[in-house]
């Protein structure tokens, strides 16, 4: 427990000093406020940049708040998620490759504490970023399009955070198993590409972790989704599995640290 706290402190210090806790939330806030703003000004933008033929009239759909939040979620799920998992997928293997891990691994630490310290800091970074991102999106949506039920909104954000925490665990697991280049590739395939693949061919099944984000946004609507709870539970089970595998591989690959 004591080594966990020391390692946690170390991870926080690193993330703080490398400005991760500044730029990652700012990136998500930017992503979050982009959609409400651009959709709102879409007509003006099109008129200003495109040389519309005379008599051409553009009819944009009338957006409701849930559409905008769905669009923001789409931003998080693509650009935001890619940037986030790239950052996480280097947390364990990079230390082994540059040799900084050596002076930690030779001390009486448990690899459980080591992995969990990184997972906790990575998860908090993700939770902070998406919460602020959604807050930004919601703020603009509320001003420009109208509001949604507060409790449902909070529920949605928390539900999305489960997905981010899951993504953190998977990225860290790959980080423990492979070197940086492979870990990053696999993580990007499994997480952001996984989301895309699931949205393309996912109509054949009803619950998978990659659907959790969309199901979370649906919490805002009145329709009841019978698959939501199962999806949530499955995500949590896979999350725990990723952590266990990650810890085992952190220990197994400890000897690969550069000496």
């Amino acid at each position: 427990m004591k080594t966990f706290i020391i390692l946690l402190q170390k991870e926080f210090r690193e993330s703080w000093r490398s400005f991760k806790f500044l730029w990652m939330p700012l990136l998500f806030i930017l992503l979050g406020i982009t959609d409400p703003l651009t959709n709102y000004y879409m007509e003006d933008i099109l008129n200003a940049v495109g040389n519309m033929p005379d008599g051409f009239s553009l009819s944009l759909p009338d957006f409701v708040p849930i559409d905008i939040l769905m669009a923001s979620t789409g931003q998080f799920q693509s650009i935001g998620l890619i940037v986030f998992v790239i950052t996480i997928a280097g947390m364990i293997n990079r230390e082994r490759q540059n040799g900084t891990a050596t002076l930690i691994y030779v001390r009486p630490i448990s690899f459980f504490a080591l992995f969990m310290s990184k997972w906790v800091v990575g998860s908090l970074l993700g939770i902070l970023s998406v919460s602020l991102g959604y807050a930004g999106s919601m703020y603009y949506t509320a001003i420009l399009y109208g509001s949604v039920d507060t409790m449902s909104f909070i529920q949605m954000v928390m539900s999305y955070c489960v997905w981010i925490v899951f993504a953190t665990a998977v990225a860290l697991m790959f980080s423990a198993i492979f070197k940086t280049a492979f870990a990053t590739t696999f993580t990007i395939i499994v997480i952001p590409f996984g989301v895309m693949i699931d949205s393309l061919i996912g109509q054949y099944w009803h619950f998978s972790p990659w659907k959790l984000a969309n199901y979370s946004v649906q919490l805002l609507s009145d329709t009841h989704n019978e698959y939501y709870i199962k999806t949530l539970l499955l995500t949590i089970i896979l999350l725990i599995l990723a952590i266990i595998i990650g810890i085992l591989f952190t220990r197994k690959n400890a000897g690969t640290t550069k000496i």
């Binding site: 390692l7 170390k10 210090r13 490398s18 002076l103 009486p108």
Partner: peptide, 23 residues
Amino acid sequence: PQYPNFYPWLTALEFTEMTGKLN
């Protein structure tokens, strides 16, 4: 180690203190 590698974002004192605590 032959070529010890340190976290560039820690000071010498912070690093030594942390490694001491870990031990």
